[in-house]
Amino acid sequence: MSIFALIGAFGGGVIGAYLGALPAFILTGVLALAGAAVAMAGGADVTLSYVTFGSYLGPHVAFAGGVAAAAYAGKKKLLKSGTDILTPLFGLSDPMTLIVGGVFGILGFVIHYLAGGVLKLNTDLPGITVIVSALIARFAFGSTGLMGKVQQGEKRTYISGGKELSCLILLGAGIGTATGFVYQTMAAAGAPEAVTGNFPVLCFGIAALSLIFAQTGFGVPSTHHIALVSALAAVLSGNPLMGVLFGILTALFGDFVGRTFNSHCDTHVDPPACTIFIFTFLVNILFGNGFFLT
């Protein structure tokens, strides 16, 4: 563990708080896209390791810090809801909100280190860290419990139905088809391992950056869990159809997690992060070993 990176994680958590969790994550997407492009072109993998997925903008630091800060601000009635991950929190003029973000940035760094450096978990480390951090924030600052409280007259659903379900399946199949068969095109052309190995990161960056449309008020869903896992499945299996299959599965599972753990609640638990860490583990077990997006 680097003491410098640990200290830096406090700053990363503050950044996530003052920007807001989702805006910070969008910046992660920008740098993931740029870093993957550089790595695919044969450049040094410095930005990805130390900035994009490190103590500056790593989701386990900045996004997780922003989520916790929003939960705290919601508890203190500074935000309408602790589930608000879009609002930059600097405008609240509350130093403690920023401090909470910084503390959870450090916590995210430590959880990430324990998961990867000590437990050697064969999964996506930022993803599992975001979930653990969010659950800690939920029990520390929330009041609706693990799965939220369904109000009288409301009904909990665990999966979309009707046309919404059809669109969800098509979304997963469409992204999985793109990631899987573009990978196959590159592999058939003899692309080196630096290209195919960083392709899932590129797909993740594109999807994460697309959330800028959600941030500005348009109905664009989160798809980085679909893009990352489907691309990873295609690359590790060498089969583009695995991209399609895992695209559909991650789209459905993300919807399930969102409705189960992120509905009827007062803090945010991230469905894509949960989907990424579970399905990265499955893909690694099925098709190969080794961490991804560490």
Rank of each mutant, 00 (worst) to 15 (best):
S237D: 07
C274F: 08
K77M: 07
T280K: 01
P221F: 11
A208K: 01
P192N: 06
Q215P: 02
A207D: 02
G11K: 15
P272K: 02
G58H: 04
V38C: 07
R156H: 09
G190L: 15
P192V: 14
V201W: 02
L33M: 14
A187S: 09
T123E: 04
G219N: 13
S2E: 12
S210C: 15
L171Y: 01
K80Y: 02
L245S: 01
V14A: 07
L171A: 04
H225N: 07
L78D: 03
V269R: 01
A208S: 11
V110N: 03
V14H: 05
D45G: 06
R156Y: 12
Y18P: 00
G35Y: 04
Q184N: 10
A36M: 15
A62V: 08
D94L: 07
A64H: 04
V235T: 04
A137Y: 03
V229C: 06
F109D: 04
N198V: 05
A234I: 12
G29D: 05
G127C: 14
G174M: 09
Q151I: 09
G13Q: 09
D270M: 08
I26P: 00
G162E: 09
A115Y: 01
S210M: 15
E193F: 04
L22A: 05
N284P: 05
E193V: 15
A34G: 09
G65I: 13
T185D: 11
Q152M: 13
T280F: 01
R156W: 14
F213C: 15
G105A: 12
T83C: 06
L209V: 14
T177V: 07
A251V: 07
M186D: 06
V150W: 06
G117F: 14
A231F: 03
V67N: 00
I175S: 02
G42D: 15
G148V: 15
S81V: 10
A44S: 12
L171V: 05
V51P: 02
L27H: 00
T177E: 03
V201A: 08
G105F: 07
L252E: 05
V51Q: 10
D94G: 05
I136L: 12
T223G: 04
K76T: 11
N284V: 09
K75Q: 08
G145N: 06
L171G: 03
V110T: 08
I206G: 00
T144Y: 11
N198Q: 12
L146W: 12
G190T: 11
N289G: 08
M147Y: 04
F25H: 03
V182S: 09
T196N: 05
T185Q: 11
A188I: 11
A73V: 11
E154P: 01
G288H: 02
Y56K: 06
G43W: 10
T280Y: 00
V110Q: 04
N122G: 08
G142F: 12
M147T: 09
I15R: 00
I128R: 00
M147I: 10
T275C: 10
S143D: 15
Q152S: 13
I212V: 13
Y183H: 01
A36H: 03
K76D: 03
